[in-house]
Design a protein around this nucleic acid. Structure first.
Lengths: 215, 215
DNA sequence: TGTACATCAGTGAACGCGCGTTCACTGATGTAC
DNA sequence: TGTACATCAGTGAACGCGCGTTCACTGATGTAC
């Protein structure tokens, strides 16, 4: 309906308003790159191809990004925002301080990796493009923060407590490793086929449960 | 001393015997690629540059490898052999069935990732080159087998026991995740600075220790 | 031990390709008066 | 409301580059007799 307000006849690519200044190029390029990374893997992307997909000339992207690295950083940044949101809403779906809340944060993480393995790899991939980018590091820490909060609530300790930090890191490692293994070997390793939730709950229980005998 | 037996005056690159048929090119190329991957990251490698480093023409590699993917697969295969050996000898350094043996396997894994982050990423990296390569999948399973064996000995159960498989996978996930996080963020995340061994033992204890309350 | 020959592992020149980036340009949009 | 102009976001042609791969070749090595 609303699409018909523009007079333009079926042109290649969705071209809102006029061809110039559609104001959406930046977002469209990021979406295109996300797509490329997903289908051709990280590094299987080129500025030229992204521009082609967005329906603009190969020079157009440089009006929005300094160079190819900056585009990638844009994709990573956007992806981290979505990951963070997913983790938060995972936690929010369960009672604060429950093991389920912790597991749900992990489940969101794993789901993200499965849904967008290429982007997931890009986010945690080689440091070439986004090393030293302080905003990305910050976003990474924010994601970790969600785990820390859930663990702190579970242990009834302050998030800053070293015990919380340590256990949260262990939980994160597990989920991170499981995510990678699951997208790497798909279902090749027998164990990886089993239900995520069972694993996540078992690990949460083992790591956050009552203190085991101390060495 | 022994180097002086060849008459060749200081030539570029170590050129054993004659320039032709030095019989070592395959291995030298793999070593060169390993180096390149380490310094420029996975995908930061080219056949041309590898040939250059090995001191041969850019066409020479094709006498030993079908294409660039086959070279990468060679690097991965060699790396997995070394990783497997390191894991085995880690386990062998401690009493069979001890938590220490399990932790040592993990430590070997983490050490490998730290020593060769580029290659480590390549091994577990994008599936482009080495998807479906049955020998590589086999080698991956063999590595997992080391974890399984150590866990089985610890639990005094057969390696095939589902409980062993499940817990071994959990341990592997943790170590895998910790390895990636440690090479990704180096020491950015506070917790990652802490001693590996402490983590590894804590996790081994939590996962393989006495059964926690069920349900 | 000597010779003939097949094979093997290199060379180096060449190819076509797609990429990242730059450049001068142009037409649309927003703003001041 | 109309006009002049600065700015903004595109175009499209062009560049130089390094790469993967192929090709006909050549010289060294191993083997049969």
């Amino acid at each position: 309906m609303a699409d018909k307000t523009t007079v333009a006849p079926a042109e290649p690519r969705v071209t809102p308003k006029s061809a110039y200044h559609h104001g959406d190029l930046r977002a469209q390029l990021i979406a295109a790159v996300r797509d490329l990374v997903e289908t051709h893997g990280p590094d299987g992307f080129s500025v030229a191809e992204a521009a082609r997909r967005a329906g603009v000339s190969s020079a157009a992207p440089y009006k929005h990004f300094k160079d190819r690295h900056e585009i990638l950083r844009g994709v990573v940044s956007e992806a981290m925002d979505r990951l963070h949101a997913a983790m938060r809403s995972g936690a929010a779906a369960h009672a604060t301080g429950s093991l389920e809340a912790v597991a749900a944060v992990g489940q969101a993480y794993v789901n993200f990796a499965r849904a967008e393995p290429g982007v997931f790899r890009l986010v945690f991939g080689l440091t070439e493009g986004h090393e030293n980018a302080p905003d990305l590091l910050k976003k990474g820490e924010n994601c970790f923060g969600v785990v820390v909060e859930a663990a702190a609530a579970c242990l009834e300790l302050a998030p800053q407590h070293p015990d919380v930090q340590r256990r949260a890191y262990i939980l994160w490692s597990f989920v991170h490793g499981h995510s990678f293994l699951t997208i790497d070997m798909k279902h090749k390793v027998a164990s990886a086929e089993v239900d995520d939730w069972q694993y996540l709950m078992e690990v949460a229980r083992a790591i956050l449960g009552p203190v085991e005998r101390t060495g």
